[in-house]
Each structure stands twice: as C-alpha cells, then as structure tokens.
C-alpha cells in the first residue's frame, strides 16, 4: 500500500494518512493482521514530522482500525464496534449525504444512483475476498 500526502490541501496531513489507511482497509488492500510501517519509517518515507504519523495512528487505534502490539508494531485489527448504533448511523448518513448531493447535481435518477452504488459495493466486496 502506497500512502501519499499533499501539504497545502484542505485536509491536515495526519487526516490524509488516516483516511488513506482507513480506505485501504475498507477496500481489502490491507487485511486483518497486516503490519503497518513503524511511525518512524512512514514519517521518513513521507518526509513529515513523526508526531503527525503518530497522531494518525493514534486516531486509527481509537477508531478500532489498528492495534498496537507492544514491542512488535502496529497491525490492522479485527474491526471492533467502537461506536454506538446511533453514532454509526449518524456517520453513515453524513457520508451518504455528500455522495447523494453530488449525484443529484449530476442529474441522475434515484434508480441509477442506487444501481451504481451497488456496483461499487460489489466491486469492494470481491476485491476484499481476493486479498483476504
């Protein structure tokens, strides 16, 4: 998995790192148990302050995406439910709202949007199976 950061963009650098790891896990590019580069190694690779990488990892640990195994490093973990059901729904709605707004602006019908959505989900699921 290749992480890239762009300074000077709307998202803070730690957020860019966290989002990319999260996406890689969701897309099955990273499977449960896969190791991540150490904070120091990733900071060196991206030429960023190590505290920035540490902050991204800490957030992913808090969100239940990664876990720290003392002395061994950071790994992708079995997804734990860290949010309550209400909170999960709220976050889902928030994410969908952006996608829906964009889709409607492009003049697609409900049926078309739903169909593309399920194609996307199928693609994700099959990719996850291949790698897992």
């Amino acid at each position: 998995m290749q992480i890239r950061v762009v300074p000077g963009s709307g998202a803070a650098i730690y957020r860019q790192i966290a989002d990319q790891v999260q996406r890689a896990v969701a897309a099955g590019e990273l499977a449960v148990g896969d190791p991540l580069p150490s904070v120091r190694a990733l900071a060196k690779e991206l030429v960023v302050n190590p505290n920035t990488v540490a902050k991204a990892y800490a957030e992913l640990v808090a969100d239940g995406v990664l876990e720290t195994q003392p002395g061994r490093g950071v790994f992708v973990t079995e997804r734990r439910a860290v949010y309550s059901q209400d909170e999960r729904l709220r976050r889902l709605d928030e994410a969908l709202e952006t996608a829906v707004n964009e889709s409607i602006r492009l003049d697609f019908s409900n049926a078309e949007i739903l169909e593309r959505m399920s194609v996307q989900l199928d693609k994700l699921n099959s990719r996850g199976k291949q790698n897992g």
Binding site: P7, G8, R40, K44, V47, V48, N49, P50, N51
Partner: peptide, 27 residues
Amino acid sequence: ILEFCQSGQRSVLLSSHLLDDVERVAD
C-alpha cells in the same frame, strides 16, 4: 531536519517562507 530531531531531545526554530515545508516538518 527530521533526521536531526529523531531522538525527540533536540529542538529547532525554523524561519521560513515555504508554508508547505513548515506544514510537513513543524510541530
């Protein structure tokens, strides 16, 4: 600069006009 600070004990005051670089390396 980042290698120099690796130990966490050294400090840097970096005057610069390059905002992207400051965003990358500075705390």
